[in-house]
Amino acid sequence: MERQIRYQREANLEWAHQFTKQPGGERLLSCIQCGTCSGACPLSIYMDLTPRQIIALVREGFREDALRSKTIWLCASCYACAVECPQKISITDIMYRLKREAIQSNLYPKRFPIPVLAREFCEMVRRRGRNSEFWVVFRMALRSNPFVLFSMARTGWDLWRTGRLSLRKGRIRRIGELQFIPVASKEVD
């Protein structure tokens, strides 16, 4: 990791404070930086910043560093950190909030497939009420890196021959009820 100096005046403590009002983040300020979250995380060794470092950045108000990290996108939401944390901080929910804010402020690596997947997924569910694994993955690949479709072909064939690849796009009957669900609010929630 590149070592950089940060100055106190760059810290946005008001931003940090918002996390304590969000479900799961109430006890953010009681983090003791023990690193149990990073130890429990099966993905921390692939991350640019460990979960412990993310928590430290969030709590000190270094917004951009946290939002620009790849860590938040590698988090698979397995909640291992949340159940292990001795201070009962739901690190997973903090990661979720960071993902939402990164998507809203467009602060994610370009062509990075995970935010694209999230958007495609939500778009399909909003329109049809259900999600088709095949079409969501297909559209994600088209929009991030179409070449991966070649490497996915073999898996696709395996699924096809075992009758597990469904091209059907389901749609719920009472789709009208979903219109009362806000698509995405202006503020991060």
Binding site: A76, R100, C122, V125, R130, N131, D189
Partner: peptide, 13 residues
Amino acid sequence: NCCGATAYMSVSQ
């Protein structure tokens, strides 16, 4: 309808 899984939570709680 779809539960929303992890993807929806990443867009709006």
